[in-house]
Amino acid sequence: MKDSIHKYFQIGTIQWMSHPPADMDVLDSLKTICCDDFFDAVEVCRFMDDETRLKARNMLDQAHMKVCYGAQPRLLGPGLNPNDVDEAGRQKAEKTLLEAVDEAAYLGAGGIAFLAGKWEPKTKDLAYSQLLKTTGNVCAYAAQKGMMVELEVFDFDMDKAALIGPAPFAAKFAADMRSSFHNFGLLVDLSHFPTTYETSKFVVQTLRPYITHFHIGNAVVKKGCEAYGDQHPRFGFPESANDIPELLDFFRVLKEEGFFHAQDPYVLSFEVKPWKGEDGDLILAGTKRVINRAWAML
């Protein structure tokens, strides 16, 4: 492509993945990302104290960053399940998602993203109803603030084993949600396509009416190999599924399916993290090189 990728997408990164908390202070991480003009957007999660949250908000505002809010850690950390068949458990998940909407609004984000919880074959239909209930309540609350709610499509039997996807099931859920809530959308992640045994073309074409947000990344889906599952290793990681050719294919599909919107660009964030002693800043630099090469070949 002759045009810059920034013409058609707001390029971001997931802060807590790029710089895991054990490796770097969150404010130092945010400053590093905000000072890098490759990034138009940054995805943040829960801040544990008011002072840090205020400093982060001021930093994001000064840097003119598009702010996105990931509520996934709020669920995964304490093991909360928005489709819990136990109503008390479902309500706990809903409560933290409603709190996420408030925190996202404070930080200047236009919405939140989350994921479905684990499921069991015997109670799948009930779990689906529970997820509709949770998501509907969160969408209704977010709508009062003019905010979006996005469900990220995950693997259904490999690692996270979330109720939503694969893509056809995610499309069914999104259609059910959109019948009542216009502020609902789907977040699709290139790193999850190998974990749901699907291709970029299949996922994007299947979910096209409902996609509002993109992630890119990598996965290892060969059993017995290091970083197996939904671990988001760097592009080109040994025995992994995605590198420059797969990202190029993804870009081609997005172009063919009409997702290049110069006037109102989608957020496209990369979700990669250092693996066992790797350096987060080196991984960021390497990911940008992968993006630049794939884009140049488009």
Rank of each mutant, 00 (worst) to 15 (best):
Q15E: 15
C34K: 10
H19P: 00
E103M: 13
L186V: 11
Q231N: 11
K201W: 11
D249C: 11
A113P: 04
E198K: 08
E246A: 07
L115V: 15
A285R: 14
L151I: 08
E51W: 08
P274A: 06
K7L: 15
G280R: 01
R234H: 07
K66L: 03
E278M: 00
L60P: 05
L54C: 03
E99L: 11
A71D: 08
K255Y: 09
E43L: 03
L54P: 01
A227F: 02
F270M: 09
D84I: 01
S129N: 14
M148I: 01
K223P: 12
V267D: 00
F270S: 07
D176P: 10
S29C: 10
S4M: 09
A140N: 08
H213A: 07
G258K: 10
V149H: 05
A174Y: 12
D36M: 06
G236I: 01
N292M: 13
H192M: 07
A175H: 11
Q205R: 15
K31F: 11
V153N: 03
F235G: 06
P265A: 03
E87G: 09
F202Q: 12
Q130K: 15
Y197T: 13
F250S: 10
L284Q: 14
H215W: 04
P78C: 04
N83G: 13
Q91W: 04
F259S: 02
